[in-house]
Design a protein around this nucleic acid. Sequence first.
DNA 1: ATGAGTGCAAATAGTTTGCAAGCTG
DNA 2: CAGCTTGCAAACTATTTGCACTCAT
Lengths: 138, 138
Amino acid sequence: MSDDVMHAIEALREKGLRVTEQRKAILEALACTDSPRSAEETFSALPADTCDLVTAYRCLEQFEKAGVVERGVRENGTKVYCLKDEHGHHHHLTCRKCGCTEKIDLCMGDELEEAAVGFGYTELSHVMEVFGLCPSCG
Amino acid sequence: MSDDVMHAIEALREKGLRVTEQRKAILEALACTDSPRSAEETFSALPADTCDLVTAYRCLEQFEKAGVVERGVRENGTKVYCLKDEHGHHHHLTCRKCGCTEKIDLCMGDELEEAAVGFGYTELSHVMEVFGLCPSCG
DNA sequence: ATGAGTGCAAATAGTTTGCAAGCTG
DNA sequence: CAGCTTGCAAACTATTTGCACTCAT
């Protein structure tokens, strides 16, 4: 089991969430790829009969609330999730055609906060995804 | 009819798209608000019997391809559209609770392009939305 | 007049909810 | 053993598609 998964499990415990076989498997599935995955995709990546698709949805939602995964969106609106790694917040560059992704470190968190706080907003979060055609598909 | 709508109509013609009553009404509906609106919301903002909801979906999609509207996403994945104004590209700060929005000028287009081009990506686009609680809701 | 655009009905994708049974802490 | 979790079925929301008809160019 990877470090990231262990940390995630620990985080779940700290938040008072229960650690079940299903949840461990879902975290493992998220850990074994760099690309953010949708609930369906995460579910498909699981060994057969690990859990129900609904459970994948529910766990991913819980994981996000607990802060162990990050949520993004595809160009079509599908929600995608990826395990928070030790580097914390980052974004993705996703190929519109083949779906492959690259991690990009660049994040304007600070500028955003600044602008939003200027409007008196609190509890900020943001979604940012970059789409394009990768070298192989372009 | 506002300037923005006139420009949009002109742009449609240039792209070889037809200018119908429905399309004009949809553009008007988009023009009369600062907030990005979903297809459903745009449709509801239309005078009764202007067109079918499906038409709103189809037109907004066409408008985006033609470059006369910009598309964003809500936190829940819903697609939203807003008319491109003379200032061009911008982003929004949306209140998670009441849904009100503020326009924010800040956009990291250049940094993004740079990073993405570094990976060999082409035909870039990006989605960026900031969510929070507005002063009244926070 | 010709094909883009539209309306209506129906299909689809993604996600959420209700409820009874199961398992974790 | 309390109540968080899960599974199964079903509801729902947002969006897309097929097809015949209409209208802008």
